[in-house]
C-alpha cells in the first residue's frame, strides 16, 4: 500500500481473453480492500482487433476511470503495440509476450522491460486458450495478491465452461500456478517463434497442386468442415491471427473446389496441373 494510485493497461488481440484477465484483477483488488476502477476500450465486437482495458487501484477514492500514462503496461500481441505506445513514459514498466513480440519494437529502457513467453508456453504445455490464465497467474504475483483468493474469482468467472468439461479445470489450475511461479525474462529475452510465414505454401503431386496463403488465412476451419474427403486438417503453421492453419493431404484431395468456394479470405486454392 505504498503508492496512492496505480494505473495498469492490459492490451492484446480480441479473443485472447484480455477482458477476462482485467475483470479478475479488478475483482481481486476490490477483495483486498482497494478502491478499483476498470473500463474496457469500447469498439466493434470483432475477433482480431486490438482489445485494451484500463485498471486503476488506490487506497483513496478514484475520481475518473481514464488516464494518459500508465505505471504498468502489459502487451500480448504485436498488433496492439501501436494502440498503446502513448501510455508509456519513463516510469512505465512494460510486460510483454516475448514469444510473439520482438522486445526492441517497444521504445522503453531495457531495465523497465520484462517478458513472459506466454503464447509459446500455452501452446506447448496447456493448450492455446490458457494463455490468459498464465498471464493472470503472473500478474497475481507481480501485484502481490493472494493466489488462492484470485483462483476463487477465476473459478467463479469460468464456472460455465468448467461445468461442461472436468479436465478443463485441472488444466486451467495448472496453467495459473505455472504463471504464478514463473520467473520472467529480464534483458535476455527469448526470440519470437510465432511468426506468420510470408510465402504461399504449395503442395503438389502429379495431378494437382494446392496453394495455401498463411498471410491471408485466419484459421476459421470452414474448409476442414466442408472438405468431403477429409484431406484437410490443422497443421503446424501459424496464420495471420496467430491461429493454426490447415495443411492439405494432396493425395487424398479430389479437386472438388469446395475449400476454395467456402474460404472467406481467399486463402486456399487447388488446381489441376497444366501440362
Amino acid at each position: 500500500m505504498k503508492n496512492d494510485l496505480t494505473k495498469i493497461v492490459i492490451s492484446g488481440e480480441g479473443g485472447q481473453g484480455i477482458q477476462t484477465i482485467a475483470k479478475v484483477l479488478a475483482e481481486s483488488f476490490k477483495d483486498s480492500g482497494f478502491y478499483v476502477s476498470y473500463i474496457p476500450q469500447f469498439g466493434p465486437e470483432q475477433r482480431g482487433a486490438p482489445s485494451i482495458s484500463f485498471i486503476q487501484y488506490s487506497t483513496k477514492e478514484i475520481k475518473y476511470p481514464r488516464f494518459y500514462k500508465a505505471d504498468y503496461l502489459i502487451v500480448l500481441r504485436e498488433r496492439a503495440i501501436s494502440a498503446t505506445t502513448t501510455f508509456i513514459n519513463s516510469k512505465t514498466k512494460v510486460i510483454l509476450d516475448s514469444s510473439t513480440i520482438r522486445p526492441n519494437v517497444i521504445k522503453q529502457s531495457e531495465n523497465k522491460k520484462e517478458a513472459v513467453p506466454a503464447t509459446k508456453l500455452a501452446f506447448d504445455l496447456f493448450g492455446k486458450k490458457n494463455l490468459n490464465l498464465i498471464i493472470s497467474g503472473y500478474l497475481t504475483k507481480l501485484f502481490s495478491l493472494n493466489e488462492k483468493a484470485v483462483w476463487k474469482i477465476i473459478k467463479n468467472q469460468l464456472q460455465k465452461k468448467f461445468s461442461e468439461k472436468k479436465d478443463l479445470e485441472d488444466n486451467a489450475r495448472n496453467a495459473f500456478i505455472y504463471g504464478y511461479e514463473f520467473t520472467s525474462e529480464k534483458k535476455n529475452f527469448s526470440q519470437p517463434t510465432f511468426k506468420t510465414n510470408k510465402k504461399i505454401i504449395i503442395s503438389k503431386n502429379r495431378e494437382r497442386e494446392a496453394f495455401i496463403s498463411p498471410e491471408l488465412c485466419k484459421g476459421c476451419g470452414i474448409c476442414i468442415e466442408k472438405c468431403p474427403v477429409g484431406a484437410l486438417k490443422f497443421g503446424d503453421e501459424i496464420g495471420v491471427y496467430g491461429n493454426p492453419i490447415p495443411e492439405i493431404d494432396i493425395d487424398k484431395c479430389i479437386n472438388c473446389g469446395n475449400c476454395f468456394r467456402f474460404c472467406p479470405d481467399c486463402a486456399i486454392k487447388v488446381k489441376k496441373k497444366s501440362k
Partner: peptide, 14 residues
C-alpha cells in the same frame, strides 16, 4: 486491404 477486417469464419466475406 487484405486480410480483411472481418472475423475468422465470417459469412459476409464469403
Amino acid at each position: 486491404s487484405k486480410p480483411s477486417l472481418y472475423c475468422p469464419g465470417c459469412g459476409q466475406s464469403i
